[in-house]
Amino acid sequence: MKKMNLIFAGVCAAIGALLIILAAGYPTAADYGTGVPGPGLWPIVISAMMLALAALLAMKSIKMPAEKNTDVPMWNEGTKRVYITMGILFAYVAVLEFLGFIIATTVMEAIFIHWFAKKKPIITVLISVVVTLVIYCVFQYVLNVPVGSFGILAF
């Protein structure tokens, strides 16, 4: 947990520092002359708070007693499955615009159902097609969400 806390504090501190640098270049109250703080003040205040909290978390984590420093498994069978799933989903969203909802989603569903449910190929394809078409029809025709407006089958 100590390592996770330090990583979280580090990421937040980096984001906070970056936003302070960016917001410092924004117009100030004097530029507007109305007494209203400029657009940079609020992000700077919040980022500074985040930096201070990150420092506090880092200090507390360094001093964390050994018995509280529980192990957070980040590389085992379960987490590896999650990382692969994330990869597949990123690839799916990347091709979604080109392939369109029906093709991309059917393939995505088929991959996951084949992997998780270990069904016969024909059953896997059948479930994937039915699930995709039901979702597609509900959103496209019942809820009027133009899911079919992009991709190679766009209309």
Binding site: F90, V93, E109, F116
Partner: peptide, 29 residues
């Protein structure tokens, strides 16, 4: 094993539906 992939598809289409924007799908993911 069947439900989880359906949730993925619903998350994707749900985030797209608000503004019909693929950018929102990336934000969601």
């Amino acid at each position: 094993v069947i439900l989880t992939p359906i949730i993925f598809a619903l998350c994707i289409i749900g985030s797209f539906a608000m503004k019909n924007s693929l950018f929102d799908v990336w934000v969601m993911l």
